[in-house]
């Protein structure tokens, strides 16, 4: 039962949703109900990450492992944002709503933006150290990258007014052709994988062979 029930669930719900897209009839109502439920299940799924974080950092804190102070900061931040956010979302007054927005805009917003802005430095470093003309293919890639960058920067237009035209063409034609072929390949791959999942041939999501 531990093995069969999940396979049956996947097959049945998958087939209902798939056929509802193709044929008119009662399947559409069932499919609509099933997809509506997924919103609720997905909302529960998000809590898994928080529970995991709590377990790992709670243990680190209780055992006073090195870095316990950071674990404390993480847990306090998690609780503060969860409590204030929930209060704001479930009918909090103007004051709570403002506090929630300010907390978000001043902590999650800037810290998240800074984390990803750091990638600009790594890209710069990689451009200097790794982007080499080692082969003809690498040279073509490098030239395409440089033309795109220069064509999309206002200064490129000042240097030569054809740079933006070239960059636009590179994105519109060769890039679109390449991306389209990759997209077609990926679509065939996704279709095959989904079919394998529905038929129970692919079971990675069920975790192990048991």
């Amino acid at each position: 039962m531990r093995r069969e029930v999940p396979l049956i669930i996947t097959f049945v719900v998958g087939v209902i949703v798939l056929f509802a897209n193709m044929f008119e009839g009662p399947l559409q109502a069932w499919s609509s109900e099933l997809t509506g439920w997924l919103i609720i299940v997905s909302a529960f799924a998000v809590g898994l990450a928080s529970v995991n974080l709590f377990r790992i950092h709670g243990t680190a804190l209780m055992r006073m492992r090195p870095g316990w102070f950071n674990s404390l900061a993480l847990i306090v931040a998690l609780i503060v944002f969860a409590v204030i956010g929930t209060m704001a979302r479930l009918g909090g007054d103007e004051k709570i709503n403002n506090l929630n927005q300010n907390l978000y805009d001043s902590i999650i917003g800037p810290l998240g933006a800074a984390m990803f802005a750091m990638l600009a430095f790594y890209v710069a470093s990689a451009a200097y150290r790794a982007f080499r003309m080692r082969s003809a293919e690498a040279t073509v890639m490098l030239i395409a990258a440089i033309l795109t960058m220069i064509g999309k920067a206002p200064i490129g237009e000042l240097i030569w007014n054809k740079f933006p035209v070239i960059a636009e063409w590179l994105i519109d034609i060769p890039n679109t052709a390449g991306q389209r072929a990759i997209m077609i390949g990926a679509a065939i791959g996704a279709f095959a994988t989904s079919l394998r999942i529905l038929l129970g041939l692919e079971r990675g999501h069920l975790g192990g062979a048991e």
Partner: peptide, 22 residues
């Protein structure tokens, strides 16, 4: 946009200088 422009130029220069060194 001006900062974006110069950012692009400096990265292109990094690529060029990196390749000259190479």
């Amino acid at each position: 946009m001006d900062a974006q422009s110069l950012g692009h130029i400096v990265i292109i220069l990094f690529i060029v200088v990196g390749n000259i060194a190479f």
